[in-house]
């Protein structure tokens, strides 16, 4: 279960970064304009994160993992859609939570 949690939260983080790389979404969350460099960094982080998520799920379950990955995409988009449309101010908290889940599950997996 920890594996799936890590894969899912990486996917969520990736799409969160994709969203923040967009002008409108960034402004809604941070109330300031993103500069070019920040957008690029978010995009880079997003791609790394989403590829990591895909690689991890495929490495663990092969074809079945790819299917799971599609499902993760759907759920993360749903969650982000709800946050960005209705509670943009909570995105920061959500991202913090998301990152800590990644770190915790990553630590858990590397220790056990």
């Amino acid at each position: 279960m920890m594996h799936e949690l890590l894969q899912f939260s990486l996917c969520l983080l990736a799409f969160n970064c994709f969203a923040l790389a967009k002008f409108n979404h960034y402004r809604e969350v941070f109330k300031t304009r993103p500069n070019e460099k920040q957008s690029k960094q978010f995009l880079l982080a997003a791609w790394i994160s989403i590829l990591l998520s895909l690689v991890l799920s495929v490495a663990q379950h092969s074809g079945y993992g790819a299917l799971l990955f599609c499902g993760y995409i759907a759920v993360s988009l749903l969650i982000l859609m709800i946050f960005y449309s209705f509670k943009a101010s909570w995105v920061k908290v959500m991202s913090m939570l998301n990152i800590s889940v990644i770190i915790l599950s990553g630590l858990f997996l590397s220790v056990f």
């Binding site: 967009k22 409108n24 979404h25 988009l77 859609m81 449309s85």
Partner: peptide, 10 residues
């Protein structure tokens, strides 16, 4: 499609 992908204007 990806410009405002997370926007849902209720």
């Amino acid at each position: 499609i990806f410009k405002d992908m997370f926007s849902f204007r209720a």
